[in-house]
């Protein structure tokens, strides 16, 4: 039990108390459920790697999105991490392909362009498959903006259209409860009807 609590405590957001609760819960579960969980963990570790093209998570050399010929391969959506890719996929509004950077430029943490997969993106854009548009969907944080500006500037020589996700009011949001920064973004990014 001590070993299990220690291992669970290593996971993000899980302190010792939560780890103990999880460990006792697992102890009380049927043996087959615990085996299924252990097998799933092992299988994930052994089989899941990175797609050679977009660097998203994949259990084959090329992920199901990059292998899908029905998707628009000339439109690349750039995201910081695999979770962002999944979020955009859930929206079912984008039929292009992705590029996962695995991070963002963070000068305060010493993370520069060589520490994330920007070189790979540039190589992909200048590769044999023509790319029409790169949609930069990094987070709306200082790091995300720095990454977006850097990529947009690096793409200029290639003559590829670079766009940035709009920032503004959330669907169903009330103006009254919006913060000043969000309102300012919404105003500057307004569109004609």
């Amino acid at each position: 039990m001590t070993r299990l609590v220690k291992e669970l405590s290593r996971l993000p957001g899980i302190g010792e108390k939560t780890a103990s609760r999880l460990a006792f819960n697992l102890l009380n579960r049927p043996r087959e459920e615990v085996i299924a969980l252990a097998e799933a963990l092992l299988e994930m570790k052994e089989r899941v790697g990175l797609c050679s093209e977009c660097f998203g998570l994949s259990d084959s050399p090329r992920c199901h999105i990059c292998s899908d010929e029905a998707r628009e391969h000339d439109s690349i959506c750039v995201v910081e991490g695999p979770a962002d890719l999944m979020a955009i996929e859930r929206a079912r509004s984008f039929n292009g392909v992705y590029h996962v950077l695995h991070g963002a430029l963070a000068p305060l943490d010493g993370i520069g362009p060589d520490d994330i997969k920007i070189k790979e993106l540039l190589a992909r854009v200048s590769g044999p498959h023509g790319v029409r548009e790169v949609i930069i969907a990094t987070n709306a944080t200082v790091e995300g903006e720095a990454t977006a500006l850097y990529i947009a500037s690096a793409l200029k020589p290639a003559g590829v259209k670079a766009t940035r996700l709009a920032r503004g009011l959330p669907a169903g949001g009330d103006l009254e409860y919006s913060d000043a920064a969000t309102l300012a973004s919404a105003l500057s990014g307004r569109r004609e009807l």
Partner: peptide
């Protein structure tokens, strides 16, 4: 909270601003 007498810094629209601003913070 935002306050009228505290001006917000408009840093994130330019890479050089972010780079120099980050250096100043550090």
């Amino acid at each position: 909270e935002a306050a009228a007498e505290l001006r917000p810094f408009n840093i994130d629209d330019d890479l050089a601003k972010i780079a120099l601003g980050s250096y100043m913070l550090e």
